[in-house]
Design a protein around this nucleic acid. Structure first.
Lengths: 243, 243
DNA sequence: CGGATGCTTGAAGCTGCTCAAGTGAAGTGG
DNA sequence: CCACTTCACTTGAGCAGCTTCAAGCATCCG
C-alpha cells in the first residue's frame, strides 16, 4: 500500500510556529534569510499526510523527489538483503529528517514504512536546487544537515556488546523523544522488539533477555512498549562502555 | 608528527591528466563547466605532500579546512573511543576522497593517518563555498559526492558473520585497487591485520584464522600482505551471504 | 472462548574472543 | 655470515556471549 501524498501549502506564520521544534527549522530559517526568500522557501514546503500505519512514504527504487521532515508519528527506514532479511537502517521521529539516502544516485535505496500514524513536511528536491541558484547558502545548510545525519548514523556500530548497544539505543531514543515533548526519562517505544533487534544487529531473544537484565539491575523499567529510564547516568556509562 | 602541507598550484593540462582516475574528477570537470570557471576551479585545487608514513593529514579536533583526494598511497581514518581503543572508520586509496566527516560541525572527528607514502589534492572548503555562490552546480556535485561516500560507508555492518565481512572487504579493496591500476585480482594490502580487524570489528586472531580458512578452500592466496583472489565469484557470493 | 501476535524465558550449540605459545621474515650487531 | 632480537602474523585451547530452536505467557481481537 502506498500512501497518497495529499500536499497543501502552509500559511507562513503557521509554518513558523509548527516548525519551531523541527530539524528543517535550521533549513527554513537560516540566519539572514530575507522576507522575499522566505516566501519563496515557504512556497516550497508542503505538508503531506496523514499516512496510516503500514503505508510507505517511499520504497526502494523510487525516484528521489524530496526531503521529508516528520511532523508526527514514526517512520522506519529499512532495506531487504539478498537473502530476504530485513535490515533496519534507522527510525525517524517527530522533527527528524529522511530522504537523504537518495541524493546520489537519485533513487531511494531503502523503504520508509510508517510505524505510527504520520504526517510530514515535504521539500521537493529540485526546488531546492533551483532556489539555491540565487540563494546559495541554502545549499550549504543542506550540506550541513546531511553531514550531521551522517554523523548520527555512525554512532552505532561503535559499541561492541549487545548490552552496550541496547543502552545506547535507549538513551538515544529517549533524548530524541524528549526533544519533541515527551517526559525526560519516560516514553513509549514506537517500534517492535524485532525492529529494534534488527537495527542493533542482535536477535530479538537477546534483546528481550538483556532488557530483563537491565530491569533486574534497576536501570530501567519496561512494560511492553512503555519504558522508563530509572538510572539514566549509569545507563549512559554503560552505553559508552565505561561500566 | 604532523605533515607540513607544501602546496603548489597545478598546471591545468597536467591536472586534467593526473585527475582522470580520481574521484574529484567528477567535481573538477562537471558537465558544462565553462573555461573561465575551470580556471578558477583549477586555481583552487592544490597538490600537497608527499607525506611520510606515520604522519597525519589531519587529526581529531582539527578545524575543517578542506576536502582531500588521495593521489597516491593510503590513508587510514580512525577515532579513539572513551576506553582508548582504536576504531577504524575506513581506508582511503588512490583516487578516493576524505575530509567530509567534518562538514558539520566544522571540525574533524577522526584522525587521518598515512599508511603508505602519500600525496593528495587539496580543495579548500571555503573556496568551494565562495565559488559555489555564482556556480551553484558545484555544490550539487559535492552533495552527490558526499552522498555516495555515505552510501559506501553503510555497505559494511550489513554482513553478519566474520567470514562474510572479510570476503566483502577483500572483494571491495581489490576492486578499488583495480580501479587505479592494480591487476584485476591480485594486490598488496596497504594496511596491517590489526587495522583490518579493527575496521571489520573482529579480533586479529579471528581474521588470521579465517583468512587461512579461505586459503584452505582455495578461494584466495595470502602471503603476508600479498593477496590474490583465486575464486572471485564464490568470494562475492560469500560476501553477500549467499554461500 | 479460541486464535493470533508479540514478547519472554529456557536449554543447547556455535561463533568469535582471550590468553598464550609458536613461526617466519627482516633487521642488528658481532 | 650467522646468532639474536623484534615484530607481525599464525595457530591452539578454553571460555563467554549470542544465536537458534522451542516452549510458555500475556494481550488483543474476532
Amino acid at each position: 500500500m502506498r500512501a497518497h501524498a495529499n500536499t497543501s501549502p502552509l500559511v507562513l506564520g503557521k509554518l513558523r510556529d509548527a516548525c519551531s521544534f523541527c530539524s528543517l527549522h535550521e533549513l527554513c530559517w537560516p540566519m539572514g534569510l530575507e522576507a522575499a526568500d522566505l516566501e519563496r522557501l515557504q512556497s516550497m514546503v508542503r505538508q503531506a499526510g496523514p499516512f496510516p500505519v503500514g503505508s510507505y512514504l517511499f520504497r526502494t527504487g523510487d525516484q528521489f523527489t524530496a526531503i521529508y521532515a516528520v511532523r508526527s508519528g514514526c517512520i522506519k527506514s529499512y532495506s531487504v538483503d539478498a537473502g530476504g532479511h530485513e535490515l533496519v537502517h534507522g527510525f525517524h521521529l517527530r522533527g527528524e529528517l529522511l530522504g537523504f539516502d537518495a541524493v546520489y544516485p537519485e533513487q531511494h535505496h531503502c523503504n520508509a514504512l510508517i510505524l505510527e500514524p504520520c504526517s510530514v513536511c515535504v521539500i521537493p528536491y529540485h526546488d531546492i536546487d533551483r532556489l539555491s541558484a540565487d540563494f546559495h547558502s541554502l545549499h550549504s545548510q543542506i550540506l550541513r544537515l546531511i553531514s550531521r545525519e551522517f554523523a548520527r548514523q555512525l554512532m552505532y556500530g561503535e559499541g561492541f556488546g549487545a548490552t552496550q548497544r541496547i543502552a545506547a539505543f535507549l538513551v538515544n531514543i529517549c533524548s530524541r523523544l524528549h526533544q519533541s515533548g515527551s517526559p525526560e526519562y519516560e516514553f513509549r517505544l514506537p517500534m517492535s522488539r524485532e525492529d529494534i533487534a534488527s537495527y542493533l544487529a542482535i536477535s530479538p531473544e537477546t534483546l528481550s533477555r538483556l532488557l530483563s537484565k537491565l530491569r533486574g539491575q534497576r536501570l530501567i523499567e519496561v512494560n511492553r512498549r512503555h519504558v522508563r529510564l530509572v538510572d539514566p547516568e549509569r545507563l549512559k556509562l554503560l552505553a559508552e562502555g565505561l561500566d
